[in-house]
């Protein structure tokens, strides 16, 4: 069976609607990962609770996202949509990564900055909010960007829990018409179309923030 252009044209609208869901899940999941990761990085500095949280995050980081997705999806009560579960699990999984990134950023802030804040007797919230975090976050922007791309490439896993994203649409089309070639190739092309330019963008970010 060779490539069928007419069939390709017919399935593109369905795939594009899947792509929209993919992007939505990525954006929501990433926002969650950014916020939650920072919270985890901060709580990790608290005694007792910190190491405990670290152990939990380590466990999440060392186990497959697919299993976590299916696990939570099967456990969740009926009222919650698969999409909600999808981006929540995605966000929590990636928070385990972004927390480490934030932590390395915080540890990279020179001790002199801490000492200066202390010498000026800045309150803790000013030390963190005005001195440490702006510097810490700035230096980890490229690393955080890498995880955005990584996360985008992990969204096809959501199809395992019936979220109607790109991969789901492609395998549905494949199942209905018994033709996988066109749909699967297009999915691959869509991914390249998004990841190659974003990789270039990250490289530019790296160059811009590397000097800090």
């Amino acid at each position: 069976m060779a490539w069928d252009w007419e069939f390709t044209g017919r399935i593109i609208p369905d795939l594009l609607s899947g792509l929209v869901v993919t992007v939505q899940a990525t954006v929501l999941g990433y926002a969650l990962a950014l916020v939650l990761g920072l919270a985890v990085a901060l709580v990790r500095r608290v005694p007792v609770v910190g190491p405990l949280l670290h152990a939990v995050m380590e466990f999440i980081r060392c186990t497959p996202l697919l299993v976590q997705l299916v696990f939570v999806f099967t456990l969740a009560p009926g009222g919650i949509s698969a999409f909600t579960i999808g981006f929540l699990v995605l966000g929590v999984h990636y928070a385990a990564y972004t927390a480490e990134v934030y932590r390395s950023g915080i540890e990279g802030v020179p001790p002199g900055q801490w000492e200066a804040s202390r010498a000026l007797s800045l309150p803790a919230h000013r030390t963190w909010g005005a001195v440490v975090l702006p510097q810490a976050v700035r230096r980890v922007i490229p690393a955080l960007g890498n995880y955005l791309i990584a996360m985008f490439k992990d969204t096809p896993l959501l199809f395992a829990i019936t979220v109607g994203e790109l991969m789901y649409q492609a395998s549905r089309i494949g199942g209905v018409y018994f033709r996988y070639l066109e749909a699967m190739t297009l999915v691959g092309l869509f991914f390249l179309l998004v990841s190659v330019p974003s990789a270039v963008l990250i490289r530019r970010l790296e160059r811009r923030y590397a000097a800090v």
């Binding site: 490439k153 992990d154 969204t155 096809p156 896993l157 991969m167 492609a170 395998s171 494949g174 996988y180 070639l181 699967m184 190739t185 999915v187 691959g188 991914f191 390249l192 990841s195 190659v196 990789a199």
Partner: peptide, 13 residues
């Protein structure tokens, strides 16, 4: 650029 899952499905199907 291509997710491993997509690549695997492409090869399998």
């Amino acid at each position: 650029g291509i997710a491993a899952l997509v690549l695997m499905y492409w090869m399998a199907f």
